[in-house]
Design a protein around this nucleic acid. Structure first.
Lengths: 353, 353
DNA sequence: TTGAAAGCGCTAACAG
DNA sequence: CTGTTAGCGCTTTCAA
């Protein structure tokens, strides 16, 4: 309705001041100004307890005077620790991963580490490419989503001394540390839950990413145990989107499929499904039960009643960061024992209060 | 309902293989294996056009044989370019910033840059602290959200030669590059829009972050021009959350305030407001009009009808990354001219189809 | 086209 | 406590 077309205004800004032209001051410059040796400057910054107050004072003044800012690149090269942690997630457009990354970054930053962000688009080949680049930056630790990686990725990570924490999944043979839960079990529990509620005719809408596929597998195995072999199932391309939920439910209903419950691989889809159901005058959950995954705020509170599998990305992120920090700060020989944390999950029924 | 308590299983993983113990191979190791000088290895990797096919062949084989991975820290130190770009946003738990960061990271990664992520929690002091750490990593570029920073932040950035792009806002005196739009204008346009619809009694629920405050200011100025001075207004703590929208509307209604339209500083709040309104049996927009900001997918499609101000974080992110890359790759003297892009915005009315 | 020498800016290790 | 000496692993000159 209103549209301010981009006025392609290109104007001069940031005059190249003299300051900007002369190179940044180094440790040696500071040492000269302070009249001490370079190492005393380094120590004043990194291990002040080893330096006398008198020298510290002089150094601090010189730092302020010169506007010195330590070059971490040089420091990292010399000390072999970069204070960088790489975090590779499929996407942060999905709220659960955004929460996870937020929690990881917060924890790491408190401990003095910086976050190097990589986005793999649910593609383990892409993850491998990213990792190659990232490994070049010699991060002190790596946090990954999932336990499925390319053979090459596993090999590289395994033979590198860098601590790794895999998250959001379980595996019998983690690369190193692990903070996750069983997706197959999630699906199974959801199936048993719906069966216990009396449902016998189901539909499913699942994304095609690895973890969603495994959740769906667990769901199906629960149905199979109850003697149910057939259901109307739909697969959508990851990352799942709200609109896909709407569309797929619409297609299922228009195709004349008959079911009383819809299994969705994620809340984003469930959200769309519920929206479409309400739009068509169906009551949720009376006419149609819907189950999602993720326990996102908006999904959990928007509708009259919703059932969702709750897994707090925030908690996973925090635990992952803590596990990684522990491994990074421990002595090498101690760090040999990898941690494995099963964060668990729960099925939640909510009434929007 | 189901709860798998964390089995505190701690077991040995990641055996310290011999490979892991001996240090990573260096350029020199590769050179020895290939029987050439170190510089030829470097050139084969970075400027192969300067190396004869014969040597390239030998070097490639040696690299494969040793499993060499260039140490970017050393390379960056020597070449004075880190291929790192710092992105500081208030939070990525908010979908608009997650989208922005996603787009930035995608674009940068395509151009060979890595993303250093910083989260400032809507706090410019925190931003300054983050920046200090980040500047130590000598990033090749910096992308910031907003144009409001501490005096010290501006000073440091201005006198540093690092290209900077501010986003999500406009300013008469940007530090360097700029990709944004006028928040005050957004608020004003929203006000005029609602007035044109015939509304005269308003309520507002706004977050207290700087940009939300300015949008609200613009909104108020539009009302004032129409002779409306009073309205029931509520302020919530940033980052805004869905629940705050519900709570604040509930309080406004319970307090007996009378209004036909609610101005919300962001879609997250608008979403909660609509939810609460529907819960109370109010029709939206017939009984109560609601305006948000951000044009989030779930907000735009969930309800029967919604009006929202659309600003695609994705577009801003992409443009910001492109502007930054241009500045980083241009020659220094050319890079003097900063770019300023006004991305515009629009008011959208949607029927959930 | 290839190489030798000289650092990039910092810290580890040892000596005083 | 403080300083000296050697690098960290790579790339930039500059020569050959």
């Amino acid at each position: 309705m209103i549209d301010t077309p981009p006025p392609p205004a290109r104007s001069t800004s940031k005059s190249q001041s003299l300051k900007a032209l002369k190179k940044a001051p180094t440790l040696i410059d500071v040492a000269k100004v302070a009249g001490v040796s370079p190492i005393s400057v380094s120590r004043t910054i990194n291990q002040p307890e080893l330096v006398s107050p008198a020298i510290q004072q002089k150094v601090r003044e010189a730092i302020a005077q010169t506007g010195y800012l330590p070059n971490k690149l040089a420091g990292s090269l010399a000390s072999r620790s970069s204070w960088l942690v790489a975090v590779i997630v499929p996407t942060i457009a999905n709220a659960v991963f955004a929460e996870t990354v937020q929690a990881i970054t917060d924890s790491l930053s408190r401990a003095g580490y910086q976050t190097l962000l990589g986005l793999s688009s649910y593609d383990i080949q892409q993850e491998e490419v990213l990792l190659t680049t990232i490994l070049g930056s010699r991060p002190d630790g790596i946090i990954l989503i999932g336990t499925q990686h390319t053979v090459e990725t596993r090999r590289r990570l395994q033979q590198s001394p860098i601590p790794v924490v895999e998250t959001w999944d379980l595996a019998p043979d983690p690369i190193d540390g692990l903070v996750g839960f069983s997706h197959s079990r999630v699906g199974q529990v959801v199936g048993e839950y719906l069966l216990a509620k009396g449902h016998r005719r189901f539909a499913s809408i699942s994304a095609n990413d690895q973890r969603a596929v495994r959740r769906f597998g667990g769901f199906m195995s629960a149905l199979r145990e109850a003697g149910i072999e057939n259901l109307a199932s739909r697969t959508v391309e990851a990352p799942a989107r709200f609109q896909q939920g709407r569309e797929q439910l619409a297609q299922l209903l228009d195709a004349g499929e008959s079911f009383t419950a819809v299994y969705c691989s994620t809340d984003t889809i469930a959200h769309g499904v519920i929206s479409e159901a309400l739009h068509r005058g169906l009551r949720v959950p009376e006419d149609l039960a819907v189950v999602g995954f993720g326990n996102l705020d908006f999904a959990a509170h928007t509708y009259p009643s919703i059932t969702t599998v709750a897994v707090k990305g925030e908690e996973i992120g925090r635990l992952a960061a803590e596990a990684l920090i522990e491994r990074m700060t421990n002595d090498e020989d101690e760090a040999q024992s990898g941690c494995r944390i099963d964060v668990g999950f729960s099925i939640i029924e909510r009434e929007s209060a």
